[in-house]
Design a protein around this nucleic acid. Structure first.
Length: 949
RNA sequence: AGGCGCGUAGCUCAGUUGGUUAGAGCGCUACCUUGACAUGGUAGAGGUCGUUGGUUCGACUCCAAUCGCGCCUACCA
């Protein structure tokens, strides 16, 4: 084996082997089914830290269950990501100074497919680099044939049940992308703006009302002004008419209790029903009052084009919008409207005002409420069973509190607008004839058949496509073959767990639950593990514009500073930030990023995966875990060196041979490490089952480093190197060395697949273990027969002995290698026999020159002291040790013990503690005090002795 | 406005039904090229657990209030 762990040499090779040999496919046998659906990444996307984290967790679960013998499927696939992907290709066209309309629908879609072919493999290649053991044979894509069938099937069935309908409603309109978007795709942020106070004169010339608005240009579409019926100031005006400024129109004053807050602004609200959701609701409530005034369209006046410019109303009978504003962009129109109001003396004042501005999550454009025809899913009937599924515990959130977020949303859910005015996606399976009739069916032929329309009867398909999340919502069953009743569907639906970030609980999780219950009559998964966001080391969200994005592949492979700089500063939306990003990057990564390998990265993700918490990605951590890999690597190297070609009391694989007990002798250390291993196995399994990957990682780390390496490997040396040690003892130690390592590798494999496979291939034969790959070997389980409390206790004695001497050496500046003579005072029979039995361990790890037992009541010469239980371990001062230093050391130790003893005494002196605390707790305190007092007595005597010199 | 979460060593984080001297890694200090590993070893310094009250024999842990930070949902025109 190489001296230093080198991830690159092993990772690619093993992944290829695993995949080629078909290890990722579900096995035929298995008592239980275990299945996870990958949250499908954007087919043209690239891997980010969130994917890295998410997939590490899933792969750990999958590998763990596969090793446990479950029939395990991790379903791979990608999402067509309608708007996101279309935008990328539109940007490419833009570079050629073309628009999608220049190409036409068909050509444009072809172009997107081309782009998908070109970049589509990227994300899946990167998932492979992470070691993800996905069943690639069955990879799916949301727009592949089967999934498209599923989408149509669902649409048609929902339509037939009346759960999908078409209607003219106010939607969130993205004027840049020219499409409706759902509520979830709108992000509101507080921005600085103004509040304009505008005077609306009464038609009877008897005064005016003042309305306050943040959007004066929408005045052009006002149909009323609303006041609160309880507001004394305006009550007498209700029903009167107002002169709507700039338009020559008259609008009524209406009363609306629900919407108008008399305390806010002037207490008068202009109502613009076609451009504001609340106003639309007001309009619906007061339609009659509003249309009494003979307003065109009943007052529902759309003033904007799809680009959010002021619309031409030439097609209308009345010229509702004055000529001068027509064609102006909404913000230009705002300026003009404000200026004109000012000229006419109708603008009273302008206040600065903070307001929430809604923007499209993809385009960043300010969203307009806009009146259009759209398709909707009637959601309430679907939401009800989905709420119940979580209430009843059929679906469990981890951590539990996310269910509150889920309920909150599900109980206030609005109908889902599923049509999008874009081209990339599943075309809505609806056809129209020239009379405006709508026919819904799986395809045109079916529509003609069921509605008995002749082949030449003109029909055209709806131009719109479905929201991307519509197909994602079907993912847990569409990928398994639905609507066909396939074997995979039977085996793996419902799936076991969904692993995802909280950001898509509404977008995706809730919708999968609704669709799963509706079409499969069962939940899509039993558990939802919700993890946090991966942030940078300062806790900031990673984003291109901040220039703080880390690419998981760069952490795996490493990257030169210059390349990293180029990557972070090229193709930016705001090039002026490049300089700052360059500075930050140079400061944080002066030498670029070293290569850490996949296993280190995965272990880091696991170690940081505390539940319900975002993770700040700290380079120190990944470095530490890279070192851990190196530690494991070198420990294995040591084992190989000592075991290869030697007799380990292990027969060749499958022969079942192992040396008879008489030829095999286990040392204390052997029995101890085997016992500790059993506990580690339990801890790791419990942690993974409970989604505590941080605990799993920690248990592995501590066992490997602090027990196996720090103690056990060291303790194996005196046995293996002692020419006087029996062959049986050596055999026992070799066997333990290699067997524990082999177990440890399997224990670690779910988190770190590559390094464990690489080492296992060499170690397994020596451990007498058969198998082609570690992937399919059983996950280690606790063996009660190997738990040895006596050995653990005895080992504790040995460790205390060694630590005591090391401590004296460390604090006294005695070279660790310096061999010192040791005297034992107050040593019991047991102490003496332990010291004798484990002399080789003590000599080797504490570098003791000699160990001599003093007769009772002999306190020995002036010495430095360590306590092991009641026994005093003495290192004589003579020449070695500074008297004053030892006095100081003792005083420190005494004062610590004394403080402790006082605290305990006080506790025990408190009658209510003794009365009320459980007896076991009281006894524990008593024992502690006893021990303390004995130790104190012993140390004080020692101190007196040295002081009196 | 409502909901959720966080505040523990210089930094990143554990601390599972209240009972430890509050832990780990990184960083820091001193010493050590010992034959698995300097991506290492040994020893050590460092915390009034945001603040204030309360419950309790006992609070990092439970309750209340408060300060600071973050997120989500809905918004006042």
């Amino acid at each position: 084996m190489e001296k230093t762990y080198n991830p690159h040499a092993i990772e690619q090779r093993w992944y290829q082997t695993w995949e080629e040999r078909g290890y990722f496919a579900p096995s035929r046998a298995g008592d239980a089914n275990y299945c996870i659906m990958i949250p499908p990444p954007n087919v043209t996307g690239s891997l980010h830290m969130g994917h890295g984290f998410n997939n590490t967790i899933m792969d750990t679960l999958i590998r763990y269950h596969r090793m446990k013998g479950d029939r395990t499927l991790w379903q791979p696939g990608t999402d067509h990501a309608g708007i996101a992907t279309q935008m990328v290709v539109e940007r490419q066209l833009e570079a050629e100074h073309r628009k999608r309309h220049d190409l036409g629908r068909e050509k444009f879609i072809e172009r997107i497919w081309e782009w998908k072919q070109e970049s589509g493999g990227n994300i899946t290649r990167q998932l492979r680099r992470l070691g993800s053991s996905l069943d690639w044979q069955h990879e799916r894509f949301t727009m592949d044939e089967g999934l498209s069938e599923a989408v149509k099937e669902v649409f048609v069935r929902l339509y037939e049940e009346g759960l999908i309908y078409r209607g003219k409603r106010l939607v969130n309109w993205d004027p840049k992308l020219h499409t409706a978007v759902s509520d979830l795709e709108v992000l509101s942020e507080e921005e600085n703006g103004f509040m304009w106070h505008i005077r609306y004169p009464l038609s009877n010339g008897q005064g005016h009302l003042v309305v306050a608005t943040t959007r004066p240009e929408t005045l052009l579409g006002d149909c009323a002004v609303a006041v609160n019926p309880a507001d004394e100031r305006y009550r007498h005006m209700i029903g009167e008419l107002l002169e709507l400024p700039l338009t020559g129109r008259r609008i009524p004053i209406i009363a609306d209790e629900e919407h108008v807050d008399p305390e806010f602004g002037t207490g008068c609200v202009k109502i613009t029903p076609a451009h504001d959701f609340n106003d639309y609701a007001v309009w619906q409530r007061h339609r009659d009052e509003i249309s009494i005034s003979e307003q065109a369209h009943g007052g529902l006046i759309n003033i904007l084009t799809i680009d959010a410019a002021i619309r031409n109303n030439e097609d209308e009978e009345a010229h509702l919008i004055p000529e001068k504003y027509i064609g102006l962009d909404r913000y230009e129109a705002r300026k003009r409207v404000v200026a004109d109001l000012e000229t006419q003396g109708l603008l009273l004042k302008v206040d600065e005002h903070k307001l929430m501005v809604p923007r499209g999550d993809r385009s960043g454009a300010v969203i307009e409420p806009f009146l259009t025809d759209q398709w909707y899913v009637k959601i309430a009937p679907l939401a009800k069973p989905a709420i119940e599924a979580v209430e009843s515990g059929r679906i469990r959130f981890v951590p539990d509190n996310w269910k509150n977020t889920y309920f909150e949303w599900m109980r206030n859910i609005q109908d889902w607008c599923i049509s999008r005015q874009i081209w990339w996606g599943h075309r809505i399976p609806a056809w129209y004839d020239d009379e405006g009739n709508v026919y819904v069916g799986r395809d045109e032929a079916e529509v003609r058949r069921t509605h008995q329309l002749s082949d030449d009867y003109p029909l055209r398909q709806d131009e719109d496509v479905l929201d991307t999340w519509f197909s994602s919502a079907l993912w847990p069953f569409s990928t398994l073959g639905w609507p066909e009743q396939t074997e995979r569907l039977q085996n793996f639906y419902p799936t076991s767990v969904l692993v995802t970030g909280f950001d898509i609980i509404f977008f995706w999780v809730a919708r999968m639950i609704m669709m799963g219950l509706k079409f499969m009559d069962d939940v899509p998964f039993h558990e939802v593990y919700v993890h946090g966001l991966v942030r940078d080391s300062h806790g900031d969200k990673m984003s291109k514009s901040k220039g703080n994005v880390l690419d998981p592949i760069d952490l795996i492979d490493g990257i030169e500073l210059e390349t990293l700089l180029k990557k972070r500063t090229s193709g930016m939306m705001q090039p002026q930030l490049a300089k700052k990003i360059e500075q930050q990057t140079r400061k944080e990564f002066p030498d670029g990023i070293p290569s850490f390998g996949t296993d280190s990265l995965r272990f880091t993700f696991a170690a940081l995966a505390a539940t319900g918490r975002d993770i700040k990605f700290d380079m120190g951590r990944i470095e530490g875990y890279r070192n851990f890999c190196n530690k494991l690597w070198n420990a294995s190297r040591y084992v190989m060196m000592n075991v290869e070609g030697q007799d380990c009391g292990v027969g060749p694989a499958r022969t079942g041979h192992s040396a008879p007990a008489s030829e095999l002798q286990r040392s204390l250390a052997d029995r101890w490490i085997l016992s500790r291993l059993q506990k580690a196995k339990q801890a790791v399994a419990d942690a993974i089952e409970g989604y505590r990957f941080d605990h799993a990682a920690q248990a592995i780390y501590e066992f490997t480093w602090n027990e196996y390496c720090d103690w056990y490997l060291e303790l194996s040396k005196p046995v293996l190197n002692d020419p006087n040690a029996s062959e049986a003892a050596k055999r026992g130690t070799r066997r333990t060395l290699v067997r524990v390592l082999e177990n440890l590798l399997r224990l670690t494999h779910p988190i770190m697949p590559f390094i464990t496979e690489e080492i296992w291939q060499r170690v397994a034969p020596l451990a007498g273990v058969d198998g082609e790959t570690i992937m399919n070997r059983p996950f280690p389980s606790r063996r009660e027969s190997l738990i040895d409390e006596a050995a653990e206790q005895e080992m504790e004695w040995v460790m205390q002995f060694i630590l005591g001497i090391r401590k004296i050496k460390g604090e006294m500046n005695i070279a660790p290698a310096k061999q010192v003579p040791v005297l034992l005072a107050n040593a019991s029979e047991a102490d003496q026999s332990l010291a004798l039995r484990h002399r080789p361990f003590l000599d080797f790890l504490a570098r003791t020159e000699s160990i001599e037992v003093l007769p009772p009541n002999d306190h020995g010469p002036e010495s430095a002291t360590a306590l092991v239980g009641e026994m005093k371990v003495l290192i004589p001062l003579a020449g070695l040790i500074d008297k004053d230093a030892e006095i100081k050391r003792l005083e420190k130790e005494i004062s610590r013990l004394q403080g402790d003893a006082e605290r305990t005494e006080k506790k025990l002196g408190n009658p209510s503690f003794v009365d009320k605390a459980p007896p076991a707790v009281v006894q524990k305190e008593r024992d502690k005090l006893n021990e303390n007092l004995k130790a104190l007595e012993s140390l004080r005597a020692q101190l007196d002795k040295i002081q009196s010199l």
